[in-house]
Amino acid sequence: MNNRVLLEVNHLSKHFQLGPNQTLRAVDDVSFHIWQGETLGLVGESGCGKSTVGRTLLQLYKPTSGEIRFAGERVSDMTERKGHKAYTSQMQMIFQDPYSSLNPRMTVTEIISEGLMIHRPNLAKKERKEQVSALLELVGLSSRQANRYPHEFSGGQRQRIGIARALAVEPSFIVADEPIAALDVSIQAQIVNLLMDLQRQKQLTYLFIAHDLSMVKHISDRIAVMYLGQLVELAASDELYARPLHPYTEALLSAIPLPDPVQEQSRERIVLQGEIPNPLNPPSGCRFHTRCPKAFDICAKEIPSFAEVLPQHYVKCHLYGEKGE
């Protein structure tokens, strides 16, 4: 990891208009940056907007407001000047479901070389084939499998195909959206190890989106926690685990069952009451105050700011503002 910021996100919002009077604020005023070569983990429960962040970064959704800078350049300028392609060859995505994200009517070669044909149209057919073989070997498959169809592979192997497809255009940044959630435990570790090896080999930068905090902690350098469309905490992974500041992060960490019966059956657990409120009508003030065990009167009225409370440790909570304590 060096000290160059690869991706900078400033006050990014993505709202979906669902009806004349209904706006879903899926992502609301989110700011963060990703260093070159690091893995930023993005965690939160379903519906918190973490996948929307990933997709908006890749311009699969047009942001409602805010800016995204990639390697110092504004993405909106970049796509205007050089077209969408200049950007998409730099950024790729690995999807959650290895069953629905591969076209069942295309062979593995066709799936992987599709990106090459778009981004490097001058490549001769033979070279393209060689590239595909090399990519397959890279992700731990055999080039003999290149002419098979997705249904002939297991879930873990399909996810490897998805990774090979993402790597084909030699991106520097990859959004991995729950890449292991659909896989069995024994296969998850294979894919995570592969992603970490590839990162070292190719100096990749990852945004790793997941709800499984123990795996996220394993793979990430820093972790951002999202709740109802907003970032509530951001810190280095070990720091976040050792010293969670936001009550939501605390509850999230304490809710994860540990695979150790003695520890698990003796530990005190913060069980949150209720469920995530309807994102169409988020609570006023701090969005977590309706479920927060530490909420006090100001939390319902004022939106806390996302502030650096400890060095490189950001949190959005009144407990750490001037008005708290």
Binding site: S154, V185, S186, Q188, A189, S214, H218, P259, Q263
Partner: peptide, 25 residues
Amino acid sequence: WGLLRSMPRLDAAGTEPLIPIPGTP
């Protein structure tokens, strides 16, 4: 053994590589 080892520990410091079970069922 494999199942227990292939899971990351939330309370473990550092990032030793996980030990996956190779192959498929």
